[in-house]
Design a protein around this nucleic acid. Sequence first.
DNA 1: CGCTTTTGACCTGCGC
DNA 2: GCGCAGGTCAAAAGCG
Length: 168
Amino acid sequence: MAPMQNNQMLLLGSSSSSAASTPSLNIENFNSQNFFHGANKKDKMKVETRIQHHESNNISEGGGKVTKGDKKIRRHRFAFHTRSHVDILDDGYRWRKYGQKAVKNSKFPRSYYRCTHKGCNVKKQIQRLSKDEEVVVTTYEGMHSHPLEKTTDSFEQILKQLQTPAPS
DNA sequence: CGCTTTTGACCTGCGC
DNA sequence: GCGCAGGTCAAAAGCG
């Protein structure tokens, strides 16, 4: 495998009906820096991240006892295909695991995380591909309306970590 | 002691 | 109407 390769981030627009809602999506909120931050944090190897933008304007909270009246809540979904051996990609936010279910298409279970913050209902789910267990799919749902709790490490820090051979 | 993880139960939507 | 799949909650346990 190739050594430290440049981080590759692919943006996939899955807008089938080309809804003229948000063509530029909200990547602004999800600074790539944050992603890199987490992607490289644990895995010093090359990190291949793929971003998938999903815009659903009618997502029902299946299984929820509440949100019985919600119907037209527009939620933004971003799927990140990250090549990493670890599924715990710390993006700087505080996540609390609230569930885990086994997917039929995958041999590995899917983990559900929630952002622990006052008023921040951002959800995130991590799933590993059964075909390529090296590939981790991180799906973000919602947008953070608060700064990172951790000190946003600069790119230099990340690079430093990349160069720093983590003692396994 | 507080927070996070774990795990089973429960609910909802969809397909047949 | 029933079964399946996916998603969430809640209680208990575990850890710093």
